Computed example of a mutant assay.
Amino acid sequence: MLEIAGALLDALTDGRRVAVATVTRVLGSAPRTLGTAMAVTDAGAVLGSISGGCVEGAIYESAQEVLETGRGQLTEFGVSDDDAFAVGLSCGGTVEVFLAEFAPAGMRNALSHAARTQLELAAAGHAAGLALVVDGAGAGRILTPMDESGEHGSASGGAPAAGESPGLDADAERRIRAELGARIGSGETALGAVDCDGATSRVLYLVAATPPRCLIFGAVDFASALSAAASLLGYRVTVCDARAVFATPERFPAAAEVVVEWPSDYLARTETDARTVVCVLTHDEKFDLPLLTTALNLDVAYVGAMGSRRTHERRMLRLREAGLPAAALARLHSPIGLDLGASSPAETAVSILAEVLAARSGASGRPLGSRPGPIHPTA
Protein backbone atom coordinates (compact mmCIF):
# COMPACT_ATOMS: atom_id res chain seq x y z
CA MET A 1 0.00 0.00 0.00
CA LEU A 2 2.76 2.44 0.90
CA GLU A 3 4.27 2.23 -2.58
CA ILE A 4 1.21 4.09 -3.92
CA ALA A 5 1.03 6.52 -0.98
CA GLY A 6 1.48 9.59 -3.15
CA ALA A 7 -1.35 8.65 -5.50
CA LEU A 8 -3.64 7.78 -2.56
CA LEU A 9 -2.98 11.15 -0.93
CA ASP A 10 -3.71 12.96 -4.19
CA ALA A 11 -7.04 11.15 -4.54
CA LEU A 12 -8.04 11.87 -0.95
CA THR A 13 -7.04 15.53 -1.31
CA ASP A 14 -9.30 15.72 -4.38
CA GLY A 15 -12.20 14.51 -2.20
CA ARG A 16 -12.34 11.00 -3.67
CA ARG A 17 -13.23 7.87 -1.78
CA VAL A 18 -10.81 5.04 -2.55
CA ALA A 19 -11.05 1.25 -2.27
CA VAL A 20 -7.56 -0.07 -1.55
CA ALA A 21 -6.72 -3.71 -2.28
CA THR A 22 -3.60 -5.00 -0.52
CA VAL A 23 -1.89 -8.37 -0.98
CA THR A 24 -1.99 -10.03 2.46
CA ARG A 25 -0.70 -13.49 1.61
CA VAL A 26 1.09 -15.16 -1.30
CA LEU A 27 1.34 -18.93 -1.70
CA GLY A 28 3.20 -20.64 -4.52
CA SER A 29 4.25 -18.75 -7.65
CA ALA A 30 2.74 -15.28 -7.88
CA PRO A 31 3.88 -12.13 -9.68
CA ARG A 32 3.79 -9.56 -6.84
CA THR A 33 4.88 -9.51 -3.23
CA LEU A 34 3.26 -9.14 0.17
CA GLY A 35 1.92 -5.63 0.76
CA THR A 36 1.57 -4.72 -2.92
CA ALA A 37 -1.52 -2.60 -3.45
CA MET A 38 -3.97 -1.40 -6.06
CA ALA A 39 -6.64 1.23 -5.49
CA VAL A 40 -9.82 2.24 -7.28
CA THR A 41 -11.37 5.67 -6.75
CA ASP A 42 -15.07 6.40 -6.71
CA ALA A 43 -14.50 8.09 -10.07
CA GLY A 44 -13.28 4.78 -11.52
CA ALA A 45 -9.56 5.61 -11.72
CA VAL A 46 -7.09 2.77 -11.02
CA LEU A 47 -3.93 3.37 -9.00
CA GLY A 48 -1.17 0.78 -8.87
CA SER A 49 -1.30 -2.93 -9.70
CA ILE A 50 -1.72 -6.15 -7.75
CA SER A 51 -0.52 -8.77 -10.20
CA GLY A 52 0.80 -7.07 -13.29
CA GLY A 53 -2.49 -7.77 -15.09
CA CYS A 54 -3.64 -11.17 -13.82
CA VAL A 55 -6.46 -10.29 -11.41
CA GLU A 56 -6.97 -6.55 -11.83
CA GLY A 57 -10.35 -6.96 -13.54
CA ALA A 58 -11.79 -9.06 -10.72
CA ILE A 59 -10.36 -6.74 -8.06
CA TYR A 60 -11.86 -3.75 -9.84
CA GLU A 61 -15.31 -5.34 -9.51
CA SER A 62 -14.73 -6.12 -5.83
CA ALA A 63 -13.59 -2.55 -5.27
CA GLN A 64 -16.90 -1.28 -6.62
CA GLU A 65 -18.71 -3.34 -3.99
CA VAL A 66 -16.50 -1.97 -1.21
CA LEU A 67 -17.11 1.60 -2.37
CA GLU A 68 -20.87 0.93 -2.42
CA THR A 69 -21.17 -0.79 0.97
CA GLY A 70 -18.20 0.60 2.88
CA ARG A 71 -17.40 -2.89 4.17
CA GLY A 72 -14.04 -4.56 3.68
CA GLN A 73 -13.50 -7.86 1.91
CA LEU A 74 -10.88 -10.57 2.34
CA THR A 75 -10.68 -12.34 -1.03
CA GLU A 76 -8.49 -15.09 -2.44
CA PHE A 77 -7.52 -15.81 -6.02
CA GLY A 78 -5.70 -18.98 -7.00
CA VAL A 79 -5.63 -22.39 -8.59
CA SER A 80 -8.09 -23.71 -6.01
CA ASP A 81 -10.77 -21.41 -7.40
CA ASP A 82 -13.07 -22.61 -10.17
CA ASP A 83 -12.59 -19.25 -11.85
CA ALA A 84 -8.79 -19.14 -11.60
CA PHE A 85 -8.43 -18.84 -15.35
CA ALA A 86 -11.32 -16.41 -15.52
CA VAL A 87 -9.48 -13.96 -13.26
CA GLY A 88 -6.23 -14.73 -15.04
CA LEU A 89 -4.14 -16.16 -12.18
CA SER A 90 -3.07 -19.27 -14.05
CA CYS A 91 0.56 -19.07 -12.88
CA GLY A 92 -0.03 -21.66 -10.17
CA GLY A 93 -0.05 -19.43 -7.11
CA THR A 94 -2.62 -18.13 -4.66
CA VAL A 95 -3.00 -14.48 -3.75
CA GLU A 96 -5.07 -13.27 -0.79
CA VAL A 97 -6.23 -9.65 -0.99
CA PHE A 98 -7.85 -7.40 1.60
CA LEU A 99 -9.98 -4.52 0.29
CA ALA A 100 -10.94 -1.54 2.43
CA GLU A 101 -12.40 1.89 1.82
CA PHE A 102 -10.40 5.03 2.62
CA ALA A 103 -12.08 8.43 2.54
CA PRO A 104 -11.37 12.12 3.23
CA ALA A 105 -12.17 13.63 6.61
CA GLY A 106 -15.87 13.92 7.38
CA MET A 107 -16.88 10.94 5.25
CA ARG A 108 -17.61 7.32 6.07
CA ASN A 109 -14.38 5.39 6.75
CA ALA A 110 -12.37 8.60 6.89
CA LEU A 111 -8.65 7.96 7.09
CA SER A 112 -7.29 9.20 10.41
CA HIS A 113 -4.74 11.96 10.69
CA ALA A 114 -2.19 9.51 12.14
CA ALA A 115 -2.58 7.10 9.21
CA ARG A 116 -2.42 9.95 6.71
CA THR A 117 0.82 11.12 8.32
CA GLN A 118 2.37 7.73 7.66
CA LEU A 119 1.29 7.92 4.00
CA GLU A 120 2.87 11.36 3.76
CA LEU A 121 6.13 10.05 5.21
CA ALA A 122 6.18 7.16 2.74
CA ALA A 123 5.40 9.45 -0.21
CA ALA A 124 8.31 11.69 0.81
CA GLY A 125 10.74 8.76 0.88
CA HIS A 126 10.95 8.45 4.66
CA ALA A 127 10.54 5.38 6.83
CA ALA A 128 6.86 4.75 7.62
CA GLY A 129 4.54 1.97 8.67
CA LEU A 130 0.91 0.91 8.99
CA ALA A 131 -0.50 -2.19 10.65
CA LEU A 132 -3.61 -3.50 8.86
CA VAL A 133 -5.74 -6.05 10.73
CA VAL A 134 -6.98 -8.32 7.96
CA ASP A 135 -8.81 -11.05 9.86
CA GLY A 136 -10.18 -11.77 13.33
CA ALA A 137 -10.86 -9.24 16.09
CA GLY A 138 -10.55 -5.69 14.82
CA ALA A 139 -10.51 -6.70 11.14
CA GLY A 140 -10.27 -3.60 9.00
CA ARG A 141 -8.51 -1.53 11.66
CA ILE A 142 -5.38 0.44 10.80
CA LEU A 143 -2.88 1.04 13.58
CA THR A 144 0.03 3.45 13.44
CA PRO A 145 3.03 4.15 15.67
CA MET A 146 1.45 7.42 16.80
CA ASP A 147 -2.12 8.35 17.69
CA GLU A 148 -3.89 11.64 17.00
CA SER A 149 -2.23 13.37 19.98
CA GLY A 150 1.25 12.36 18.92
CA GLU A 151 1.49 9.59 21.50
CA HIS A 152 2.09 5.98 20.57
CA GLY A 153 -1.32 4.55 19.88
CA SER A 154 -3.82 3.35 17.33
CA ALA A 155 -5.67 5.10 14.58
CA SER A 156 -8.97 4.02 13.14
CA GLY A 157 -9.26 4.04 9.42
CA GLY A 158 -10.36 1.87 6.55
CA ALA A 159 -13.41 -0.34 6.72
CA PRO A 160 -14.37 -3.24 8.96
CA ALA A 161 -14.42 -6.68 7.42
CA ALA A 162 -17.74 -8.07 6.25
CA GLY A 163 -19.88 -9.02 9.22
CA GLU A 164 -19.54 -7.96 12.82
CA SER A 165 -16.09 -8.12 14.38
CA PRO A 166 -15.18 -7.36 17.99
CA GLY A 167 -12.53 -4.73 18.55
CA LEU A 168 -8.95 -5.21 19.67
CA ASP A 169 -8.22 -4.99 23.36
CA ALA A 170 -5.64 -2.51 24.68
CA ASP A 171 -2.97 -5.17 25.18
CA ALA A 172 -3.32 -6.44 21.60
CA GLU A 173 -3.01 -2.89 20.31
CA ARG A 174 0.14 -2.33 22.34
CA ARG A 175 1.71 -5.50 20.98
CA ILE A 176 0.80 -4.59 17.41
CA ARG A 177 2.30 -1.12 17.83
CA ALA A 178 5.50 -2.57 19.28
CA GLU A 179 5.82 -5.03 16.39
CA LEU A 180 5.12 -2.27 13.87
CA GLY A 181 7.87 -0.12 15.38
CA ALA A 182 10.31 -3.00 15.11
CA ARG A 183 9.29 -3.64 11.51
CA ILE A 184 9.78 0.02 10.59
CA GLY A 185 13.25 -0.20 12.09
CA SER A 186 14.12 -3.23 9.96
CA GLY A 187 12.30 -2.04 6.82
CA GLU A 188 10.48 -5.36 6.48
CA THR A 189 6.84 -5.86 5.46
CA ALA A 190 5.45 -9.06 6.99
CA LEU A 191 2.29 -10.88 8.03
CA GLY A 192 1.90 -11.63 11.73
CA ALA A 193 -0.64 -12.69 14.31
CA VAL A 194 -1.75 -11.39 17.69
CA ASP A 195 -3.93 -12.99 20.36
CA CYS A 196 -6.93 -11.00 21.53
CA ASP A 197 -9.28 -12.38 24.21
CA GLY A 198 -8.41 -15.96 23.30
CA ALA A 199 -8.82 -15.45 19.55
CA THR A 200 -6.20 -14.76 16.92
CA SER A 201 -6.11 -11.76 14.60
CA ARG A 202 -3.94 -11.67 11.51
CA VAL A 203 -2.05 -8.42 11.02
CA LEU A 204 -0.21 -7.18 7.95
CA TYR A 205 2.67 -4.91 8.89
CA LEU A 206 3.19 -2.56 5.94
CA VAL A 207 6.56 -0.85 6.00
CA ALA A 208 8.25 1.70 3.75
CA ALA A 209 11.99 2.04 4.20
CA THR A 210 14.14 4.95 3.13
CA PRO A 211 15.38 4.41 -0.45
CA PRO A 212 18.61 2.42 -0.78
CA ARG A 213 21.63 4.36 -2.00
CA CYS A 214 23.50 3.92 -5.26
CA LEU A 215 26.91 5.59 -5.11
CA ILE A 216 28.42 6.12 -8.54
CA PHE A 217 32.06 7.18 -8.71
CA GLY A 218 33.28 8.74 -11.94
CA ALA A 219 31.37 11.55 -13.69
CA VAL A 220 31.41 9.91 -17.12
CA ASP A 221 28.71 9.27 -19.74
CA PHE A 222 28.16 5.77 -18.37
CA ALA A 223 27.44 7.34 -14.96
CA SER A 224 24.74 9.55 -16.47
CA ALA A 225 22.89 6.56 -17.94
CA LEU A 226 23.41 4.50 -14.80
CA SER A 227 22.10 7.25 -12.50
CA ALA A 228 18.91 7.58 -14.57
CA ALA A 229 18.31 3.83 -14.63
CA ALA A 230 19.09 3.35 -10.92
CA SER A 231 16.68 6.15 -10.02
CA LEU A 232 13.91 4.33 -11.88
CA LEU A 233 14.60 1.29 -9.69
CA GLY A 234 14.09 3.36 -6.56
CA TYR A 235 17.69 4.06 -5.60
CA ARG A 236 18.77 7.42 -4.20
CA VAL A 237 21.69 8.16 -6.48
CA THR A 238 24.85 10.08 -5.67
CA VAL A 239 27.49 10.80 -8.30
CA CYS A 240 30.94 11.62 -6.97
CA ASP A 241 34.08 12.76 -8.80
CA ALA A 242 37.11 14.83 -7.78
CA ARG A 243 36.94 16.80 -11.05
CA ALA A 244 34.58 19.75 -10.63
CA VAL A 245 34.38 20.43 -14.35
CA PHE A 246 32.71 17.05 -14.92
CA ALA A 247 30.76 16.59 -11.67
CA THR A 248 27.91 19.05 -12.19
CA PRO A 249 24.16 18.66 -11.48
CA GLU A 250 23.40 19.64 -15.08
CA ARG A 251 25.20 16.56 -16.38
CA PHE A 252 23.39 14.24 -13.95
CA PRO A 253 19.77 15.44 -13.60
CA ALA A 254 18.55 12.09 -12.25
CA ALA A 255 21.00 12.07 -9.34
CA ALA A 256 19.81 13.19 -5.91
CA GLU A 257 23.19 14.80 -5.37
CA VAL A 258 26.45 15.39 -7.21
CA VAL A 259 29.55 15.60 -5.01
CA VAL A 260 32.93 17.08 -5.89
CA GLU A 261 35.36 15.28 -3.59
CA TRP A 262 38.12 12.69 -3.67
CA PRO A 263 36.10 9.46 -4.06
CA SER A 264 37.66 7.42 -1.25
CA ASP A 265 37.32 10.35 1.17
CA TYR A 266 33.64 10.75 0.36
CA LEU A 267 32.91 7.04 0.68
CA ALA A 268 34.68 6.89 4.03
CA ARG A 269 32.51 9.66 5.50
CA THR A 270 29.11 9.13 3.87
CA GLU A 271 26.33 6.94 5.27
CA THR A 272 26.04 3.41 3.88
CA ASP A 273 24.16 0.29 4.89
CA ALA A 274 23.65 -3.30 3.80
CA ARG A 275 21.48 -2.16 0.85
CA THR A 276 23.99 0.32 -0.59
CA VAL A 277 25.31 -0.21 -4.13
CA VAL A 278 28.79 1.09 -5.02
CA CYS A 279 29.69 1.41 -8.70
CA VAL A 280 33.23 2.49 -9.61
CA LEU A 281 33.34 3.76 -13.19
CA THR A 282 36.57 5.77 -13.09
CA HIS A 283 39.00 2.96 -14.12
CA ASP A 284 41.86 5.18 -12.99
CA GLU A 285 44.18 3.60 -10.42
CA LYS A 286 44.74 6.77 -8.43
CA PHE A 287 40.99 6.79 -7.73
CA ASP A 288 40.17 3.09 -7.94
CA LEU A 289 42.65 1.56 -5.53
CA PRO A 290 41.92 3.66 -2.42
CA LEU A 291 38.22 3.70 -3.27
CA LEU A 292 37.90 -0.07 -3.65
CA THR A 293 40.00 -0.66 -0.55
CA THR A 294 37.48 1.42 1.40
CA ALA A 295 34.42 -0.08 -0.31
CA LEU A 296 35.42 -3.71 0.19
CA ASN A 297 35.79 -3.11 3.92
CA LEU A 298 32.22 -1.81 4.22
CA ASP A 299 29.04 -3.83 4.83
CA VAL A 300 27.33 -2.91 1.54
CA ALA A 301 25.21 -4.92 -0.89
CA TYR A 302 27.32 -4.60 -4.01
CA VAL A 303 30.70 -3.30 -5.14
CA GLY A 304 31.42 -3.24 -8.87
CA ALA A 305 34.24 -1.71 -10.90
CA MET A 306 34.42 -0.93 -14.62
CA GLY A 307 37.43 -1.81 -16.74
CA SER A 308 38.88 -4.23 -19.24
CA ARG A 309 40.12 -7.66 -18.20
CA ARG A 310 43.68 -6.34 -18.31
CA THR A 311 42.66 -3.46 -16.05
CA HIS A 312 40.88 -5.90 -13.77
CA GLU A 313 43.91 -8.18 -13.45
CA ARG A 314 46.24 -5.28 -12.69
CA ARG A 315 43.73 -3.85 -10.20
CA MET A 316 43.39 -7.19 -8.38
CA LEU A 317 47.18 -7.48 -8.14
CA ARG A 318 47.44 -3.98 -6.62
CA LEU A 319 44.63 -4.69 -4.16
CA ARG A 320 46.34 -7.91 -3.03
CA GLU A 321 49.57 -5.99 -2.59
CA ALA A 322 47.63 -3.47 -0.49
CA GLY A 323 46.73 -6.30 1.87
CA LEU A 324 43.07 -6.97 1.04
CA PRO A 325 42.20 -10.56 1.98
CA ALA A 326 40.75 -13.04 -0.50
CA ALA A 327 37.31 -12.89 1.13
CA ALA A 328 37.11 -9.14 0.50
CA LEU A 329 38.33 -9.44 -3.08
CA ALA A 330 35.71 -12.12 -3.75
CA ARG A 331 33.02 -9.50 -3.13
CA LEU A 332 34.23 -7.36 -6.04
CA HIS A 333 32.17 -7.56 -9.24
CA SER A 334 34.72 -6.81 -11.93
CA PRO A 335 34.53 -6.28 -14.82
CA ILE A 336 31.19 -4.79 -13.77
CA GLY A 337 27.87 -6.07 -15.17
CA LEU A 338 26.36 -9.17 -16.75
CA ASP A 339 27.22 -10.47 -20.21
CA LEU A 340 24.33 -8.94 -22.18
CA GLY A 341 26.28 -7.70 -25.19
CA ALA A 342 26.01 -4.12 -23.95
CA SER A 343 28.07 -1.37 -25.57
CA SER A 344 26.33 2.00 -25.26
CA PRO A 345 26.05 3.81 -21.92
CA ALA A 346 22.34 2.99 -21.67
CA GLU A 347 22.91 -0.68 -22.45
CA THR A 348 25.79 -0.82 -19.99
CA ALA A 349 23.52 0.62 -17.30
CA VAL A 350 21.09 -2.26 -17.90
CA SER A 351 23.97 -4.75 -17.68
CA ILE A 352 25.20 -3.28 -14.37
CA LEU A 353 21.78 -3.10 -12.74
CA ALA A 354 20.95 -6.61 -13.90
CA GLU A 355 23.99 -7.82 -11.96
CA VAL A 356 22.98 -5.70 -8.96
CA LEU A 357 19.51 -7.31 -8.94
CA ALA A 358 20.95 -10.79 -9.33
CA ALA A 359 23.41 -10.22 -6.49
CA ARG A 360 20.67 -8.82 -4.26
CA SER A 361 18.31 -11.74 -4.80
CA GLY A 362 20.85 -14.52 -5.19
CA ALA A 363 19.47 -15.26 -8.65
CA SER A 364 21.54 -16.96 -11.31
CA GLY A 365 21.14 -14.39 -14.08
CA ARG A 366 20.27 -17.21 -16.48
CA PRO A 367 17.42 -16.87 -19.04
CA LEU A 368 14.14 -17.79 -17.34
CA GLY A 369 13.39 -20.23 -20.16
CA SER A 370 16.46 -22.30 -19.27
CA ARG A 371 15.78 -22.40 -15.53
CA PRO A 372 13.60 -25.17 -14.04
CA GLY A 373 10.90 -24.51 -11.47
CA PRO A 374 8.53 -21.59 -10.97
CA ILE A 375 9.36 -18.17 -12.41
CA HIS A 376 8.33 -16.27 -9.28
CA PRO A 377 9.70 -17.02 -5.83
CA THR A 378 7.53 -19.41 -3.84
CA ALA A 379 6.46 -18.85 -0.26
Rank of each mutant, 00 (worst) to 15 (best):
L143E: 09
L143A: 09
T144S: 13
P145A: 03
M146R: 12
M146H: 14
D147I: 07
E148L: 13
G150W: 06
H152W: 10
G153C: 12
G153Y: 10
S154D: 11
A155N: 07
G157D: 10
G157M: 08
P160I: 03
A161R: 12
A161V: 06
A162Y: 11
A162L: 15
A162M: 14
E164L: 12
E164I: 05
S165N: 14
S165A: 12
P166H: 09
G167R: 03
G167H: 03
G167T: 05
L168R: 03
D169T: 04
D171S: 13
A172Q: 04
A172L: 05
R175S: 07
R175L: 10
I176H: 04
A178R: 14
L180A: 04
L180K: 02
L180P: 04
G181T: 06
A182E: 15
R183N: 09
R183M: 08
R183T: 06
R183L: 06
I184M: 15
S186G: 09
G187K: 08
G187Q: 09
E188D: 13
T189K: 06
T189H: 08
L191E: 05
G192V: 10
A193M: 12
V194N: 05
C196W: 11
D197L: 15
A199E: 15
T200K: 11
T200W: 07
R202C: 03
R202W: 14
Y205R: 07
L206S: 15
V207S: 10
V207F: 06
A208L: 07
T210I: 11
T210Q: 14
T210G: 08
P212H: 04
R213C: 04
G218P: 08
G218F: 05
A219F: 00
V220P: 01
A223R: 02
A225H: 12
L226T: 09
L226E: 03
L226R: 00
S231W: 01
S231N: 06
L233M: 08
L233E: 01
G234M: 00
G234R: 01
Y235V: 00
Y235G: 00
R236V: 01
V237K: 00
T238K: 02
C240A: 08
C240K: 01
D241I: 07
D241P: 09
D241K: 06
R243L: 01
V245W: 03
F246S: 02
F246L: 06
A247R: 03
A247S: 07
E250P: 01
